[in-house]
Design a protein around this nucleic acid. Structure first.
Length: 285
DNA sequence: TGATATGTTATCTT
DNA sequence: CAAGATAACATATC
């Protein structure tokens, strides 16, 4: 499930191979997955690839923008004679023959170079926006957690006396951009805060822990994603590198990794699986 | 067989 | 009315 570090990684890696390429052909296999007019894209040159929140933004030289949201199972896979770069939901498509049954859009870059947009569940999308539409779209997102706008004052101003669970708050993209289920759980564990705590009840000290741990974990994950999400054709992996460093996510029933003697529990918060250590992360302070 | 997984949004409830 | 909760989306995997 691509969150900030994975999207950042694939955007960075795609940028290094895509910049300067011209999109010579566009094949849409799933109408639902592509929102826009093909002629806005075909024959345009790719200027750069960037990221905001969990969205990948490809800047075209006609002033239009190609946006990708991978949602849960979306993937972008670039193939040329020497490279295969895969990012997003990790599964066998990363090294399968392409196109396949999950392929929704194919960008033909000429000379046997192709960019595939795969998405098993078709929740993800690719859309074409003008500069104005892009600005409007991005305006609804909160600050990037790795940027300077992610501060104690900002979070307290948003939380006020709200009773919403801190985990849901962290995953609200209009408050903070890019944090999803995995990193919300990991951040709260590292900060020793129970996921159901009402945001309005957090102390300054706790907020500072959230900020510090979120930044630390996300920045670390970006470095991990950068090492394993992509590679040359004979050495691709099917797991994000961060997998091995997650402490609570997907570890329900196991002893607390910090050796407190507690056991990791799994509950549902906002309809999402939530993992935490009941001993380290107390509900009542 | 059916429960489960996840991001976002639409819709329902309190 | 608004904050909060839940359903819906699509489908492969366990």
């Amino acid at each position: 499930m691509p969150e900030l570090p994975e999207v950042e990684t694939i955007a960075k890696q795609l940028g290094s191979v895509l910049a300067g390429n011209r999109i010579v052909g566009l094949t849409v296999l799933s109408v639902k997955s592509f929102v826009g007019v093909k002629t806005d894209v075909v024959s345009q040159k790719i200027v750069s690839v960037s990221r905001r929140a969990k969205v990948i933004i490809i800047t075209l030289d006609n002033g239009k923008y190609l946006l990708f949201h991978l949602k849960m199972t979306g993937q972008l896979i670039y193939i040329d004679q020497n490279h295969r770069i895969a990012g997003g939901h990790a599964d066998h498509d990363w090294h399968a023959e392409l196109p396949n049954s999950h392929t929704r859009i194919i960008f033909d870059l000429g000379d046997e170079r192709k960019l595939y947009f795969n998405d098993m569940r078709k929740f993800g999308w690719c859309r074409v926006l003008t500069k104005k539409e892009l600005d409007e779209y991005l305006a609804k997102y909160g600050p990037e957690p790795l940027d300077s706008g992610f501060t104690l004052e900002y979070l307290k101003g948003k939380a006020l006396s709200s009773k919403i669970a801190v985990k849901k708050f962290l995953m609200d993209q209009s408050i903070i951009a890019g944090i999803g289920n995995i990193y919300a759980d990991e951040t709260l564990f590292a900060a020793r805060i129970h996921p159901l705590r009402p945001v309005g009840s957090l102390t300054d000290k706790e907020w500072n822990s959230v900020i510090r741990e979120a930044k630390r974990i996300l920045a670390f994950a970006v470095t991990k994603g950068g090492t394993t999400d992509s590679d040359y054709v004979n050495a691709y992996g099917t797991k994000g590198g961060m997998q091995d460093f997650l402490k609570v996510y997907h570890h329900a029933g196991e002893p607390c990794p910090d050796g407190c003697g507690g056991k990791i529990e799994k509950i549902v918060v906002g309809g999402r699986g939530t993992h935490f250590c009941p001993a380290c992360q107390k509900e009542n302070v």
